[in-house]
């Protein structure tokens, strides 16, 4: 078993934060996991990518060109991952969810956590995790920080989204 997840967005959107939560939860569960961040010099405004592999076998090489799940969180990152789009099995693109994000009045600061909830549901369906396992890792990482309530709400909305 192995699942490959590529997360993409703008620097500052929190791509690395959710990548860390997903991979930490996999490690805590005893799975084999590799997570490699990929971004340029920019602290903000550049494209930020995270390559994650989760499985039960040793992982030799952290990158891949054919993700099982590809998350696109911005226009700029959509351009950056163009070559991955045709090779991805499932694509979650923010442009398809804008209506929902606005309807539910989710703050753009919490979009990453909404998509984490969304991804969690997918990964639960793939029998990789239970939702509680990812939530626990998220709680560990963010519960002492400001906006925890908003993040919790965004996670729940992502998790309950009917896709």
């Amino acid at each position: 078993m192995q699942i490959k997840i590529l997360l993409s967005g703008d620097g500052g959107q929190g791509i690395q934060t959710i990548a860390e939560v997903i991979s930490r939860a996999a490690f805590e569960k005893g799975l084999t996991v590799s997570f490699i961040p990929n971004y340029g010099l920019e602290q903000r405004g550049g494209v930020s990518l995270a390559f994650i592999k989760i499985g039960d076998q040793e992982i030799v090489y952290p990158k891949f060109s054919n993700p099982d799940i590809l998350l696109i969180m911005s226009d700029q990152s959509r351009q950056r991952v163009l070559e991955y789009i045709s090779k991805s099995k499932k694509i979650i693109d923010i442009k398809d969810y804008n209506f929902y994000l606005q309807e539910k009045k989710i703050n753009s600061k919490n979009y990453n956590i909404f998509f984490l909830g969304f991804l969690t549901k997918m990964l639960e369906k793939e029998k990789i995790y239970l939702a509680e396992e990812i939530f626990l890792a998220l709680e560990k990482k963010l519960s002492s920080k400001p906006n925890w309530e908003e993040n919790k709400k965004a996670f729940a909305l992502g998790l309950s989204f009917n896709f």
């Binding site: 997570f35 961040p37 952290p62």
Partner: peptide, 9 residues
């Protein structure tokens, strides 16, 4: 850079 930045078991 890959080997240094990767997080792994």
């Amino acid at each position: 850079g890959y080997t240094l930045k990767i997080r792994q078991n």
